[in-house]
Amino acid sequence: MDLIKAEDISYSFKEYDEEGNVTGARTAVDHLSITVPAGTFLAVLGRNGSGKSTFAKHLNALLIPQEGTVYVDGIDTSKAKDMLLIRRNVGMVFQNPDNQIVSTVIEEDVAFGPENLGVPHGELEDRVYSSLEKVGMSEYASNSPTKLSGGQKQRIAIAGVLAMKPKAVVFDEATAMLDPKGRREVMAALKKLHEEGITIIHITHHMEEASEAERVIIINDGKVVMDGTPQEVFGNHAEAEKYGLRAPNAVLLRDMLKDGGMRLGEHIALDEKELAMQIASHLRGGEDD
C-alpha cells in the first residue's frame, strides 16, 4: 500500500523586488513523481536549494502542489476538509531544536498536538507518556525544556509528533544542528519508529545517515534524479557527485583499494564494520567476500 503518492507535482515561489512587486518565479519542485510504500525508511538527498524541503512540505499539506496531486494514505492533500487528517497522519520534525518547543513543561509540549486533535484526557496522558518513553525522555516529563541539549530537544519534538499517532514522520534536516551525540540519539529514535512500522522520510546532508535507509532518492532542480537502495545510489557515486553529493567514507576507501588492485567482491559495504569485515576476511583468506 502506498502511503505517499506524488503525481507529477510542481511548485514555484514568486520572487519580489523591494517594493513587493512580483518580478519572477523560481521553480522549486518540477514535475516530480514518487510513491512511498507504507513502512519505508526513505532518505532524501540533494544540494541546498534542490527542492528537498519544498517537496517535504507537500507531504503534510503545508504546501499544496500548484500542478499535480499528492495523496497521503489515499487522500488528496488539496482537499481542505481533510487537512487535519493529513497533518495527523504525517508529522514533521524540523531543523532547529529551539524553534519547535511551545510549552514551558515538557509533558505539556508533547501534549500540544494531540490536545489540538481533541484527544480525551485519559488517553492524552497515555499518549504523552508512551511517546516520551519511546524517545527515551520519560524522566524529563515534568521538567522545563530550556536546559535540554539539542538532541534531547529534538527527541521532545519527535515525541510531540508521535503523540498524534502518525503513519509517517518527515525529518527535515532534523540532525543538522546537532553534535555527534545528539545526532546518534535522534537516529536511534528514528530507527525505533521505523521498527514500529512508521514510514520515515529523512532529509539529510549526512551520507552515513542516508546509508542506513532502505531507499535513497536524490532530488536535483526539483526532480528525482536517482532512486534506489543505498548500495545502488552510492555504488554509482560518480553520478551522485554531479548533484553535489559525496559517497560515504567507506565507499571511498573501498574505491581506493579497488584502484590499487584489491578485489573485494560485488557487495558494497556502506558502514565501517561491514567494510572492515570484508577487508579482513579478504586479506586473511584471499576469498572474494
Partner: peptide
Amino acid sequence: AAGLDPEGK
C-alpha cells in the same frame, strides 16, 4: 560548515 551540503562544505 553546519547545515551545508557536501559541495558547500
